[in-house]
Amino acid sequence: MTHLAWLACWGSALLLVHVFAGYPAIMWLLARVRPRPVAKQAWLPTVSIVIAVHDGERYIRNKLANLQALDYPPELIDIVIACDGCHDHSVATARRSTDPRLTVLDFPNRRGKAACVNDAVRLTRGDVLLMTDIRQRLSPGALKELVANLGDPSVGAVGGELHMENVRTGFAQGVDFYWRYEKLIRQAESSTGSMVGVSGALYAMRRSLFTPLPPGTVLDDVLVPMRVAAQGKRVVFEPRAMAWDEPSQEPEAERRRKIRTLAGNFQLVQLAPWLLVPWRNPLWFRFVSHKLLRLVAPWLIVALTLATGYLFNHHPMYALAFCGLAAAALLVGVARMRPGVGTWLPARIVVAFFYLNLFAAQALLAFARNRRLHLW
């Protein structure tokens, strides 16, 4: 039993270190030792902007105004908004627009984002597809910065940078911290070849590389770039192409969205099992390290806690590790009872880490119970 506890302790610890520190460090070192710069070119291809929306009436007017303000020749742009079973006035609001470049698709029955994107892309005419969500505001130069990366023939897709605004509570500040940490990893991945995912709020790709998404796909912002990489093209990060969003201020508000997104990773493996095959997935190591092992992290934390508890009296190192884990759990509880504590930087980080891993554990159960994750 002691031998198994030792294996569980060290195996879990090493994998957790690799996921949250080792892999980012490897990417960071590679970015400095063997960088792969993008040969950006100033060019102006035709662009089709695709937006899928469900009950987004309150965002549509501002979003269209935001797209009209893009620093890009308007005659080179067309826009398709696909309304997925909207029960509000999304369709009517969009159709009140006088922009001749806009096409509005009305699907009375909800089918999910993937089906709407597939239908919208079929109507587009641009050489480049710009994928964006209805809620986020884009910087005026975002589109021009994205397509400049596509001027490099080796680049097939490029993601923009999502910034958080109105970060008010301790929980939101913790989420913002981890999002900044995630962006550093993506930048390092991009600098050494390709990212394994982009932000669904803002990314562009060559239309010729798009293939219809499997019905019900949740994480198009991971599957699409992985398909692009499988076709021999790079997926890169452009920090000068910016979008702004507001994070959830409390765990309860974040829970549903995050569980659905994390469960989408399990669905992704089900829809595209080739992602698990090293000789078919050119980004296999990155995909496993960045995406899959994070799904295992909550169970590794549980195993580490149980193992160090069992080995508590065998060596002071195990006792120290167990007490550290217990102290972190206690800090989460105190921060929940006393919100003022949650604004302290270590507490913000620990609380956000706890909830992100809690949601990852719940995501597995959500995926097992509900295969209709695509109904956003």
Rank of each mutant, 00 (worst) to 15 (best):
V121S: 02
L129N: 01
P24I: 11
F322A: 09
Q267V: 01
L375S: 04
A5R: 14
G193W: 00
S90F: 03
L295W: 12
L105T: 04
L213Q: 03
F367H: 09
T343V: 14
Y310Q: 14
G170A: 05
L7N: 06
M164I: 03
R336Y: 15
P214K: 15
G151F: 01
L358I: 02
L143M: 03
K63Y: 12
T305R: 07
A42H: 10
A253C: 05
D84T: 09
V269W: 07
Y355K: 07
P24G: 08
G264H: 07
V198T: 12
S154D: 15
I301S: 02
M337A: 15
R36E: 14
T305M: 13
V218D: 02
V236C: 00
H163Q: 12
R207Y: 05
G170Y: 11
K144S: 14
G151M: 10
A352Q: 05
P153S: 07
R125S: 10
E165I: 14
M164A: 13
S97I: 01
V175N: 05
L202N: 00
G170W: 05
S12M: 06
A243N: 02
K113Q: 02
P278T: 09
T169P: 06
A65Y: 00
L223R: 03
V296H: 09
F322W: 14
Y178V: 06
G197P: 03
L364M: 14
A360S: 15
L356Q: 15
C83P: 02
V341T: 10
A335G: 15
V117C: 11
E75K: 08
P37G: 00
L30S: 10
K291T: 12
